[in-house]
């Protein structure tokens, strides 16, 4: 186990290194010049060149990357070109909002997905089952901006149950979390359904049933805990999907997280911020996958660490 963990940690570190390199190459290849963004419209040619020199952007690519990596190893993500603030500080200020949104999304997708999955499994083969499974596919087929705008229109504009955007209270969280979670809810309902069907077939459930235990009790006390375990492993993997979704969801709802930070930085070629957000996201994804791998063996003894 310790050896496995050590190997996976080294692997993860190498992946992050790779991500940093690929992103750096991509941003270096951008046709737009970040210095002109910093220098602004009234800058003279010499002001532009001065800024380029100050930032070390006149140096060869490999020197720039080495410098970035050197900083990174000391935990320094650099300073924003346009805001002049530490990237780490900018991300730290916005990370809580993003984490809150993700937590909300996980709760939403589990609540909706598991409920739908359980009902479908118990009503297997009926029209309820079919409509729930089609609904789960609608969930995975709907782009987040459409879901977000639709929820906004119905629940914020028409019914006025929730605020139309912004951040601060629990009411603000509901619609964005639903939007982000609806995709996962679609997948989880399908997983839950088949996992539940498997469990209901197991001998001990049949025994319990034969003993005359109430159906409700069987489902809640025996079937559910066993069916839910494989799903927990999936939550780690969800983080990767969320990382893409937050750019859209945060922009639709004006949620002050790192997705908005990244989007504004991309539009103005604020390279240190783009690098920082990409690395933080990649870190979260790698961590999520690692956790999923670690949780799996406890779930099902048949799955072994290879």
């Amino acid at each position: 186990m310790a050896a496995f963990l050590a190997r996976r940690l080294v692997q993860s570190a190498l992946i992050l290194l790779g991500v940093s390199f690929v992103t750096f190459v991509l941003l270096y290849a951008l046709p737009a010049d970040p210095v002109r963004q910093i220098a602004g419209r009234s800058a003279t040619a010499e002001t532009v060149e001065n800024i380029r020199r100050e930032l070390g952007l006149d140096r060869p690519f490999i020197v720039q990357y080495a410098r970035y990596l050197g900083g990174l190893l000391q935990g320094d993500l650099g300073r924003s070109y346009l805001q002049k603030t530490e990237v780490a500080e900018l991300i730290a200020a916005r990370l809580p909002a993003t984490l809150l949104l993700m937590l909300g999304a996980i709760i939403a997708e589990l609540a909706i997905g598991l409920t739908m999955g359980i009902i479908a499994a118990l009503r297997r083969g009926t029209a309820t089952d079919t409509s729930l499974m089609v609904a789960s596919f609608v969930g995975v087929s709907a782009p987040q901006f459409v879901v977000g705008l639709l929820l906004l229109y119905v629940f914020a504009v028409q019914l006025q149950w929730f605020p139309i955007g912004g951040y601060g209270t629990l009411a603000h969280l509901v619609l964005p979390a639903l939007t982000l979670g609806i995709l996962g809810a679609g997948w989880y309902s399908r997983m839950m359904r088949s996992s539940m069907i498997d469990v209901l077939r197991q001998d001990y459930i049949r025994t319990a049933r034969a003993k005359g235990l109430a159906r409700r009790r069987i489902v809640l006390r025996h079937a559910l805990p066993n069916a839910i375990l494989p799903i927990i492993a999936m939550i780690g993997i969800d983080i990767g999907i969320f990382m893409g979704g937050i750019v859209v969801v945060e922009s639709v709802f004006g949620w002050p997280g790192i997705g908005q930070l990244a989007w504004q930085a991309i539009q103005r070629v604020d390279i240190p911020i783009i690098m920082g957000v990409t690395l933080v996201s990649a870190f979260a994804i790698v961590l999520g996958n690692l956790l999923a791998d670690l949780v799996t063996p406890f779930i099902d003894p048949r799955i072994r660490i290879r």
Partner: peptide, 22 residues
């Protein structure tokens, strides 16, 4: 130059601007 001000160029008519810029 160390300040990286986008507005530095507005002060170009002040005597000595070129020397401080380079």
């Amino acid at each position: 130059p160390a300040t990286q001000s986008p507005g530095a160029g507005f002060f170009a008519s002040i005597k000595g601007y070129d020397a401080i810029t380079d």
